[in-house]
């Protein structure tokens, strides 16, 4: 095959370790048969833990919203990335499904809804509508560097939520629930590997991508989708469930990405959520 004229800032070689084809072939679908939901009838989870499970479920459902932001940018042209995202969205769908069923296995539990004040809700709805329009203009001007930003965002989001799963398993001391958390954590491990490898490779290849990522990642809400959630819940996720030393570790991992040192994204997000919750 003759190599076509592709203008791109990225290095030609894909990450050696991760095969998107293999990932797609071995995708993990429904977990329903493995959830042992009856166990929660005799030994339910506490309301505080369920609140976190419900929050994580909504965040996992954000896959299509992420895709929406990503696909209007030049990232959609990269067939390897989109090939990954197709399977990633599928796996996240079933992770969210498992979490939803665990919550549903507790019929007495009523989750806190995102009852934001009306004005704020309207502003969100407007922003949500304008975002793909703005993004399709801005990101197309920026070009390929935006792919690095999307991969870094995907990686950081995975790190935060994965830590939340691990802490939830630990704090609840519930063997059946812990088994499910381990299971879901396994599914997410490959997402982490892919996003982290891609982000590292792309950021290392382009200093401009690093500068863009610094600007954009600072503006994002962490974990992704947290902007639509009640601040008290986000504050409990980042600072109750994910403990203070985790926040430091997570920021250290962000620091280790090429060009992203000193952002303090996760610590800042936790502080922001705490302040918003106090208002």
């Amino acid at each position: 095959m003759t190599r076509p004229d592709v203008s791109t800032a990225e290095p030609a070689s894909p990450p050696a370790g991760f095969s998107v084809h293999e990932f797609a072939r071995t995708a993990r679908g429904s977990h329903r048969a493995e959830l042992d939901l009856d166990a929660y009838a005799t030994r339910p989870l506490e309301a505080g833990a369920l609140e976190m499970v419900a929050l994580l479920e909504r965040l996992e459902r954000g896959a299509l919203s992420y895709l929406r932001s990503v696909l209007v940018t030049p990232t959609h042209k990269d067939a390897r990335v989109t090939g990954f995202l197709v399977t990633w969205a599928y796996e996240k769908f079933w992770v969210a499904d498992a979490l939803e069923l665990i919550v549903a296995a507790h019929p007495d539990f009523v989750p806190a809804t995102a009852d934001a004040p009306k004005l704020r809700a309207a502003r969100h709805a407007l922003a949500e509508r304008l975002e793909p329009i703005r993004e399709s203009v801005v990101a197309n001007l920026i070009g390929d560097d935006v792919v690095a930003v999307h991969c870094a965002a995907g990686a950081i989001d995975e790190w935060i939520t994965a830590t939340a799963y691990e802490r939830l398993a630990e704090f609840t001391d519930h063997p059946v629930f812990a088994a499910t958390m381990t299971r879901l954590r396994d599914v997410k491990r490959r997402h982490d590997t892919y996003f982290t490898d891609e982000a590292r490779r792309r950021l290392a290849a382009s200093p401009a991508a690093g500068r863009l990522a610094r600007r954009r990642l600072r503006r994002a809400s962490w974990p992704l989708g947290a902007v639509d959630e009640p601040p008290p819940l986000v504050a409990r996720l980042l600072g109750g469930l994910v403990i203070a030393s985790d926040l430091v570790d997570l920021d250290a991992r962000v620091d280790a990405l090429p060009g992203l040192a000193g952002l303090d994204l996760v610590t800042t997000a936790a502080q922001g959520a705490r302040k918003a919750a106090a208002r």
Binding site: M1, V6, K77, P132
Partner: peptide
């Protein structure tokens, strides 16, 4: 392969760039 698919998508550059914008509006 993925590189070739990417090349095809890049080739559509302008026609394609307008599509999501037009549709989101």
């Amino acid at each position: 392969d993925y590189d070739e698919l990417k090349a095809a998508r890049v080739k559509l550059e302008w026609r394609d760039k307008l599509a999501p914008l037009r549709q989101s509006i």
